[in-house]
Design a protein around this nucleic acid. Structure first.
Lengths: 340, 340
DNA sequence: TGAGCTTATGTTATCGATGACATACGTAAC
DNA sequence: GTTACGTATGTCATCGATAACATAAGCTCA
């Protein structure tokens, strides 16, 4: 058992394969990359030699000479809903793998500009061919611009830089869908527990909520800000529970909704009898909340895969913005307001 | 905006920096790696040149010449609890980053030997210096042995190969803790909703449960098998709800516990009044279940970080097995059995 | 003062695959 | 029967950093 820090013993190289197969190294290279002009017979001999020697190509050498690493970097936030993080990782990895790309991740501990710069540098140093940023960029520094100019980048939550393209789920629509559902049920006012203001997603959902209320001629109440966690939902729920005329709440994430519901119940307000609640995400547990959550589903897996496609396709459409729709799943946490 | 698939334009190399700083490339290399014998003055000049040219070292070249990629591969399962996946990713990435290593992930869609082989190959091709396998190895093929012999490997859930070391949370202890807690409350029998049998973690938890019951002189009832999802918990809960003398259930994951509880409630069995339930994980939502879950906490983040340390430290202790303890968090889903 | 050592820096070969170009052979066309 | 071209393969330089070795100072101590 060797340790990961010591230099490995020498493995067979392409030259070794070439010698065994009785051809030149270049022919081996061509045969292995399915280059057109290689006799099937030669190719067979090469593959046999590869098999015999247990040859495995050297990625570093390939990268060095070809200039492409076939790796894309993914920037994630360590905190924040673990559901989305997990789905995004899976989606990116699947789509990238499909296209023959590997994924290298860089997690940042908090939404800090310095940390963000450092993880982008780290990915750039690794020589990734492209970057997917799945966290909001609070502010885009010169260094960040430099990197995203050199390396194709797609942002996954609506952040914008001069050179990155961006793609995301239509969060404003998500906010609108949730709010409209409550209004349709007959509620006259909808309160909102939002995500942290640094998150563009949170801002967009809030905008959707505001606009929806506005177009119904309702003045939006002040939003209550959480941090995506159930604990923060619980905290804000304790405030909402004390406001008698709250009959409908739009929570920006399922996890916060769990917290809000607990707080309401502890204050004797029943969901959905006294208060209706809609949230966003449709995590696996949403159906097992008490009551099961009405929520706006987000297909992170799909939007992440789409981000990879956008990155690799690389339309020269400049900083195009692509949007993936969201859809409402109605369960039992919403109902018409109690008739007065 | 370039696309990720085309060859990037030439960036400044070490030679360029050397010329600008008026030293040799080797000196630049030494200066950047904090080699001892470099004058502070020279180092300053080099760093200035680096800054001026916007130099960024070429990872591929470094890997090619040094033989080490400073990257570790992480194998994850796409399905399965997203909580653990997320925590493991974060833990591995943080610990690896700390040590100057990058993390490349390989997700497999299902527990299939072929897929497993392919993702190990993929990581090996990428030239990772070490591998962390966070999914159970159903069966270890020759090819898998070959790779784990060449590349230092740590398994994170108790799977064993001839050459990999392994590390994990003490799952048997987790099962025992959960079961003992229920017995201590006065329950005379504890039922079990287990994870899928292919998962070693699931097996260990079940063993802990069985042994705990056995040492209390109780014969274990047949375990009910779920797949970690809340839906599967719900399904098994519907069975448990129909068995009148069930008063205590040990669910192998929080998510399944959510499902079990819903099923029980739908059949009029109250938790914890009629049935107590303990599970494992302590996810963020555990405290917001109805009722809040008593659960065995697993510190995936910590154990993952420990796995990285083990990998990089590389004791020659052969296939050592290291274990991280689990701990019980008591909330409201457990109570003494209703006196009869 | 000069042998012997240490410290800072330069030189050269090397890692392994690949792109660009060169060559050898065959075949079709005039 | 020669020109022209296509196909299969080989040769060589190259990517950029580093290890190993070489050299040039500076310093110590007999």
């Amino acid at each position: 058992m060797t340790k990961a820090t010591e230099r490995p013993t020498r493995l067979p190289s392409m030259a070794d394969v070439a010698k065994t197969a009785g051809v030149s190294a270049q022919t081996v290279s061509r045969a292995l990359r399915d280059s057109p002009n290689v006799t099937p017979e030669t190719k067979k001999r090469v593959l046999a030699a590869v098999e015999q020697l247990g040859y495995r190509f050297n990625n570093a050498a390939r990268v060095l000479s070809s200039g492409r690493s076939h790796t894309i970097g993914l920037v994630l936030l360590q905190s924040g809903g673990y559901y989305s993080r997990s789905a995004v990782t899976a989606g990116v990895e699947a789509a990238a793998g499909e296209a023959g790309y590997a994924v290298s991740i860089a997690t940042i501990a908090s939404l800090d500009t310095g940390l963000m710069e450092r993880s982008l540098s780290k990915l750039a140093d690794q020589g990734v061919d492209g970057i997917i940023i799945a966290v909001p960029l609070i502010s885009v520094t010169r260094k960040m611009e430099d990197i995203t100019r050199d390396i194709p980048t797609v942002t996954l939550d609506g952040s914008r830089t001069a050179s990155a393209r961006s793609l995301g789920i239509d969060q404003k629509e998500a906010g609108r869908l949730a709010t409209q559902h409550l209004l349709d049920l007959g509620h006259r006012q909808v309160w909102h527990v939002s995500g942290p203001d640094e998150w563009i997603e949170a801002r967009r959902r809030r905008e959707g909520w505001q606009e929806c209320l506005a177009s119904a001629g309702i003045e939006a109440p002040p939003p209550l800000e959480g941090d995506w966690s159930p604990d923060s939902g619980y905290l804000q729920g304790q405030i909402l529970a004390r406001i008698p005329d709250v009959t409908a709440v739009f929570a920006a994430s399922d996890e916060m909704a769990f917290g809000v519901i607990r707080a309401l119940r502890e204050h004797g307000r029943k969901v959905p009898d006294d208060v209706s609640i809609v949230s966003v995400d449709d995590i696996a547990l949403a159906a097992y909340c008490c009551p099961p959550l009405t929520t706006v589903r987000q297909d992170f897996y799909r939007s992440s895969a789409a981000a990879v496609a956008l990155l690799l396709r690389g339309d020269d459409a400049g900083a195009a913005e692509v949007v993936v729709p969201a859809s409402l799943t109605v369960r039992d946490s919403t109902a018409p307001p109690r008739s007065r």
